[in-house]
Design a protein around this nucleic acid. Structure first.
Lengths: 219, 219
DNA sequence: CCAATAGTGTCTATGAGACATTATAGT
DNA sequence: ACTATAATGTCTCATAGACACTATTGG
């Protein structure tokens, strides 16, 4: 006879604002950890959730109104001390969205805070955020993961800046452009330019075919 | 009121034999999947297991007699179809051991089969093995992970061969030795030599301090 | 013309891969 | 001396990084 355990899904939803990675949180209304900030999440409902990924998307939609970000399973935390009520399991995910997606959503109830300087979170959600940051930073060094933090169309300068903010290092412009353009995972948008006060920049996008493919070249 | 779910832990225990990665399996005595081969695993016992890692080590010890391999959480599989009895969760791990460790253990009840050519396994254990292979191969390209498949002491030729077997490619001897020796994560054992019929080779070991550190350099 | 950003060209140092050569054991 | 493996040396080619330079907009 197996022992049954409460299983929840929690999502570290990350975005880039003011030049830093930020986490989307909400304030808990009920105990335990009433009043503390927590990641969007909740218990799996075996009747409505097909699998853990579906549960994660349901939580995201319910708590943030976001429908289709990049979501990936991160790590599972399972022990007797993460929830004061006893042994529990959290299947954690991380998700990336471009910050404009968060504008319209129910940002009234949400708090979006810099990932590096968070207050103490509910449960072991600090650990989850730490793991998400580590994963994103590692993976960004050799993949196109940071592109999910960009809007549909973007300039190469924006793209480079995104990589720099995620990785925390300055990159050489020339080398960056060479690799990105040779790798062929961005597509030039014919004629489209984005102009500021100065010379306008070519706009690019990720080809739809590659939207879900993580190309692995060092940038 | 959270719904409680049966949570198990399964371990893909890998080793290198006859030049290929092999998986340690046992034959199930009870339904479901009675008579089928399965990964070592079982339900979490909330009274004896501190956390998921402890549960994994307990399963390994109980089913294979192995006490201290390299173990790492792999991925969690959670859906309603992986177990015919209904919604279930498996926190899966992978582990690496040098094949000599398996000699003494209860190899009588165990079957050790090539990972590339397995029969259909119980539950979704095929998926778990596939994920473990992918993870090990990916990680091996930029880390010292394959060293956990080697015995305590080894020659550089054995080490190179291990990498070649895991990665499935031939490596250049000169370049391999350069990188391994410069990286400083192997330690020469003074005077120790392993001789066959021909010129004996220097023996090396992983310094105790680095035993658990995965150095990340391309090999 | 100036400021500011977009985009390109070139040089160099590093290091991976290919391959040749030397070293040392047993028979 | 011969064979097989261990170990080292050298050359070349690709490329990352540094940096300088040119291009194009608004004011």
């Amino acid at each position: 006879m197996p022992q049954a355990i409460a299983v929840s899904v929690d999502v570290a939803l990350l975005t880039l604002r003011e030049g830093r990675l930020q986490v989307v949180l909400y304030r808990r209304e009920n105990p335990p950890f009433q009043g503390a900030l927590a990641l969007p999440g909740g218990y799996i409902h075996t009747d409505e959730d097909e699998d853990d990924g579906a549960a994660a998307r349901r939580m995201l939609l319910a708590k943030t109104g976001i429908r289709t970000p990049y979501v990936e399973q991160l790590k599972t935390f399972a022990d007797r001390s993460r929830d004061p009520r006893g042994w529990s399991v959290s299947i954690s995910f991380y998700a990336l969205v471009d910050s404009t997606v968060l504008e319209g959503s129910r940002s009234a109830v949400l708090e979006i805070l810099p990932a590096d300087a968070l207050p103490r979170l509910a449960f072991d959600h600090d650990r989850i955020v730490a793991a998400a940051l580590e994963r994103v930073r590692n993976k960004s060094a050799y993949s196109t993961l940071p592109c999910y933090l960009l809007p549909e169309t973007f300039t190469l300068s924006q793209m480079q800046s995104t990589y720099e903010q995620v990785l925390g290092v300055k990159l050489d412009k020339s080398a960056f452009r060479r690799k990105v353009l040779n790798s062929g995972f961005v597509e030039e948008i014919e004629g489209a330019m984005q102009g500021g006060v100065h010379r306008p920049a070519q706009l690019y996008r990720i080809p739809q075919a590659q939207r879900l493919v993580l190309r692995t070249r060092t940038l």
